[in-house]
Design a binder for these strands. Structure first.
Lengths: 241, 241
DNA sequence: ACAATAGTGTCTTTTAGACAGTATTTG
DNA sequence: CAAATACTGTCTAAAAGACACTATTGT
């Protein structure tokens, strides 16, 4: 006979804020819940952590299930955001969620996962802005808070890391990269100053000999460089959102 | 009859990296474990999250239990660090820990807590450095990794926030504040440039009319200002560690 | 007087901000 | 040709880095 559990147990979940760029706007992957609670509501994709997994492994697995994104290095970035543990964040059971942020280059339209009735990309601003016009969903659980925190994390990290590279596919132009900053920060950095900073940061990008582009003068194509930090940082000053 | 639990449950804990400055060196609060596993080993203080608590509330409670630090605003800073969830991080049960960082001004020597046989402040460098001379303990669980991550978080945040204020008691001199940076970064920032930056950042500190100091010319005394961000940041360039 | 710390000033270099101008492509 | 984007250059302002120098206290 063992003592009553002094140590309450919780269900451990992961939630994913999967961000990508589509048509120069930041989008987040949402799934329509097929099971209670919040059945029928839109939510961030996620799932429970298996008995032999850590949170990050579970997050990669869920990501693969929802999007088909593999753990292929260089084809996406996943990092822990923070843990949400309010006792009543799930109205039925005690579920603690380790939220993660995923940055991905443009992905195909998702297919419904196992426990999701539907899945699609939504422009982030439509989800977070109080614009009453659009048919933007109200997210289940505390997922709006998670998305807000994820967005602020990404905005901040574009300042002092080369994380913007995770949003583009190789090869890319400096215009492509600049549009990443424009979409995340809400306003494009000055053209000349942006080029000076990117090209002046050793290892940010690696030039190729090729050129390409959709319209206008063909631009030089680049690949991702090995640098991970931008020092001193590229600060955002213009209209934040 | 309900289905077998597809959702494995875990025990949810918090661990605290409580950092303070003593004699111009950064110290961390360690407790000697009084119960298995790792009985007798040194570890970060922590405990389990109660059924009606979120992780941060539990962290504040554990902090009060271990140190007597209350939730008094302005007398300490607590923030979530990250969650450690490796399935085997506890050799006996599945325990997931939401680690937190606490910055505190110099506190009295701790008293043993409920499940801790002993508690004391240890210089951080002695714990993390591979100096074989000192009788520095090897931390239980993955607590050395947590401490490393906590230290890097604090080092980074001193660059772009006014968090150094959390290490000093009011009123304080600019020399006191500079010694915080020296201890955390491993080398003091240039005297003149540091003063220019702190005094030039509106709301970092608020001057009083009083003077004080232990030796040398008495210095003006300051109180904490309302500013939380330093922009542009004060970058650390000298010997990092 | 000397040690110790506080406080000020200044010169140089780096970097960012602002913006003008030229270049090369498509329609 | 105009539109669109790529690319380069330049002037200015802000900030940091590296110091030197003066000021005020205790011993």
């Amino acid at each position: 006979m063992s003592a009553a559990p002094l140590v309450p147990s919780v269900a451990l979940a992961v939630d994913l804020a999967v961000l990508t760029l589509r048509a120069d706007r930041l989008h987040v992957l949402l799934v329509r819940r097929g099971v209670p609670p919040f059945e029928g509501a839109w939510a961030l994709p996620g799932g429970f952590v298996g008995p032999t997994e850590d949170a990050e492994t579970a997050a990669w697995r869920e990501l693969a299930e929802e999007t088909g994104m593999g753990q292929v290095p260089g084809s996406g970035h996943l990092e822990q955001l923070r843990t949400y543990s309010a006792p009543d964040r799930d109205p039925r059971d005690r579920v603690v969620s380790v939220a993660h942020v995923v940055l991905a280059p443009d992905l195909p339209d998702p297919t419904a996962g196992s426990d999701a009735a539907e899945a699609r990309w939504w422009p982030v601003e439509e989800i977070l802005d109080p614009a009453p016009a659009a048919a933007a969903p109200v997210l289940a659980f505390d997922h709006a808070e998670i998305l807000t925190d994820a967005l602020e994390r990404v905005r901040a990290k574009l300042e002092y890391t080369t994380l913007a590279l995770e949003f583009v596919t190789e090869p890319f132009t400096l215009g492509d990269l600049r549009r990443v900053y424009a979409a995340v920060w809400g306003a494009p950095p000055d053209l000349g100053n942006f080029r000076r900073k990117v090209l002046g940061t050793e290892g940010f990008v690696v030039a190729t000999d090729d050129h390409g582009g959709d319209s206008g003068r063909p631009a030089r194509l680049y690949r991702r460089g090995p640098a991970r930090l931008i020092s001193p940082p590229m600060l955002r000053t213009p209209g934040e959102d």
